[in-house]
Design a binder for these strands. Structure first.
Length: 367
DNA sequence: GAATCGTGGCT
DNA sequence: TAGCCAAGATT
């Protein structure tokens, strides 16, 4: 007796794409940058500026973290021309805390390019979009599909996980990427490519989650090869990561007694926290050496150690010693005094904000 | 192709 | 807790 085809279906446009789009019609997440499937059926497409802004913010960043930044950017810069005309310091300041600051530099460069070279109109194809700063394989495809309904394969981390499970791909990432892309190409529909991409991402974010996927309510469960094989939860396979080294550095927070202003400077445009503000800081070395004391300060002063802050970066952990001094004299160095009421909007990355906060807390406690 | 580049939340 | 993870791009 032969097994009937219906009892052993395979992931395909008929068995995955259509059920998933039906599921999306009922369960799409309501997100500030999104047009609902109902409205899209009426011909409404989202503003490419909003799609682009959200996609760049969402690179390696959670929806929850992005929401307030998206609202703030949109309120302050309602169009790509407005963003293009903004000072760099304002853009970096508004991005502060969101991380991966090259994104903010590229975001601004991209806005300027669209305004100056494209008449303020985003290219309407993935190929055109990918030529712009900060827009790579994923983001170009996502904008083209979501904002223009171009039938291109969109592959992000969610979709890599969903497809790895659907097809029981045991080859670890990133080697499995070509095969995953092949499957996404075959599943992407010509009629609703934007909704399909968003549906796959919603599925990955809410049901086909990294741990403990809710297969019982998954619209693709009947055809999921990984589920059938009992290996879905441990897919996608990934290569082991290297251990994170520990580094150490020092930050020097000078405070002006008259008004409590803090002396800040701008980091070089390239590299770690590029273009962001900081109190003068040492380099971050692999081990603590003698250079971490007041001798490493950018200018002489009555430096007192007030403690340290710990911060985890992607590829190393940092312990930053924080030193504080009071000085009325403007230092003979590059930088500026930032008054207390300005500190909230200055482009301080989280690490440096921690350091400044610790120094000011110590100052308040010691007076 | 591998390394670089942040941060906050979750388990 | 310590590790893992999130709508990746760039060099």
């Amino acid at each position: 007796m032969q097994v009937k085809f219906e009892n052993d279906p395979t992931p395909s446009a008929a068995t995955v794409t259509r059920p998933l789009l039906d599921w999306y019609d009922r369960h799409a997440r309501d997100l500030p940058w999104r047009v609902s499937p109902a409205d899209r059926r009426r011909g409404v497409l989202p503003d490419p500026y909003r799609v682009w802004l959200s996609e760049v913010m969402l690179q390696q960043t959670t929806v929850a973290a992005v929401k307030s930044y998206f609202a703030a950017f949109l309120a302050r810069w309602p169009s790509v021309e407005a963003l293009a005309a903004a000072p760099s310091e304002a853009v970096m300041g508004a991005w502060a805390g969101l991380g991966y600051y090259a994104r903010a530099r590229n975001l601004h460069a991209c806005a300027k390019a669209v305004a100056a070279e494209h008449g303020g109109v985003f290219p309407n194809s993935a190929a055109g979009l990918k030529r712009l700063p900060g827009i790579g394989d994923y983001t170009s495809a996502a904008i083209a599909a979501i904002a223009f309904d171009e039938p291109v394969a969109v592959v992000d981390g969610n979709i890599e996980r969903v497809v790895s499970r659907l097809f029981a791909i045991e080859t670890p990432l990133p080697q499995s990427r070509p095969l995953i892309r092949h499957h996404v190409d075959a599943l992407t529909p010509a009629d609703r490519p934007g909704d399909f991409a968003q549906a796959m991402m919603d599925l990955g974010a809410t049901i086909c989650t990294p741990r403990r996927p809710a297969c019982i309510v998954c619209p693709a469960q009947p055809v999921c090869t990984g589920r059938r094989a009992g290996i879905a939860e441990r897919l996608p396979a990934k290569l082991p990561k290297r251990a994170k080294p520990q580094r150490r550095g020092a930050a020097f927070v000078a405070v002006r007694p008259a008004d409590g202003a803090v002396w800040l400077r701008r980091r070089p445009a390239a590299g770690m926290l590029g273009g962001m503000a900081e109190p003068p800081s040492s380099a971050w070395s692999a081990k603590a050496d003698g250079a971490l004391g007041p001798a490493a300060a950018p200018f002489p002063g009555d430096w007192r150690r007030v403690g340290s802050v710990a911060h985890g970066f992607t590829h190393f952990d940092l312990e930053l010693d924080v030193w504080r001094t009071e000085t009325a004299a403007t230092p003979a160095a590059e930088g500026w005094w930032s008054a207390p009421d300005q500190l909230g909007t200055v482009a301080l990355p989280t690490l440096m904000r921690k350091a400044v906060t610790l120094a000011l807390k110590d100052r308040k406690a010691s007076t």
